[in-house]
Amino acid sequence: MAAIQTTALTKTFGDVVAIDSLDLTVEEGEVFGFLGPNGAGKSTTIDILLDYTRPSSGNAEVLGLDAQKDTMTVRERVGVLPENRSLYDRLSGRRHLTFALESNGVEPIDERISHLLDRVGLSASDAQRPAGDYSTGMEQRLSLGMALSGDPELLILDEPTSGLDPNGIREMRDIIREESASGTTVFFSSHILEQVEAVCDRVGILARGQLQAVDTIEGLRDSRGSSARLTLELDTVPDLDLGLIDGISGVEIDDSTIHVSCSAGEAKAKAINHVEAAGATVLDIGVEETSLEDLFRAYTSGESVPTETSEPQEVLA
């Protein structure tokens, strides 16, 4: 049984097709990153899984249950972190957690509250304050605590890292890993890529309402050709055509530096050997793997992976 399975799932709003015949399978126990630019249809998909929205055609199953017919059972077994902030400004963090625990029928409330606060890194004094006073990071922690309150089999997190600082992102990631280690399936959407790369078993890339790819990060890189860019700084640039070497898809020369786009790992070594054999001395070597950003842009724009424009990625964790 899959944790999430959609079959030819389609949703239109008037003339706008939000999701277009989506077939998505998320296996039990995996961490699945649901990637796509804003407006790709990620939230609409999640909305259907939780029956906030009804499909125009096709169907969705969550934990083997029909998302539209067995909605209440789905909600009992799933923990949800909705998109954007959705807390009550005037109610305290503690009151929110009380509501969540009562709703899931979990007891004893006080004990569970301390446990959840601990889990998401909120202090007891934070919990006394109204949620309206919280920073974005605290809001997300509280929302996550509520999502975890029923000890769910499946966690659905809609943009869980939006508005978080690098520290908060790392903590969110740690919690996702812990949950996953305890057997929970985690399905989360994001338009920010580094976060997905670090924590997901598999990713699905959604654009214009359709799945463009579903694979592991490595699998995506391989399937999309060019996987690394080799930069060689030389004393002189020899007269040779590296482009003829198997596994090299492109060469760019910039004064005494050459950039080589490699689609296979061994091509990098071959390139260096050829350059040295042609009489040049290699002064420095740089290797840059194709970033997920490039892959993502390629998939969502429908173009090939743009190796020559890649810039060093901002490392967030």
């Binding site: 906030y52 949800v80 998109e83 902030r85 029923g150």
Partner: peptide, 9 residues
Amino acid sequence: GSIKMLLGF
């Protein structure tokens, strides 16, 4: 948007 939180339970 809090309706989504309510209906998540």
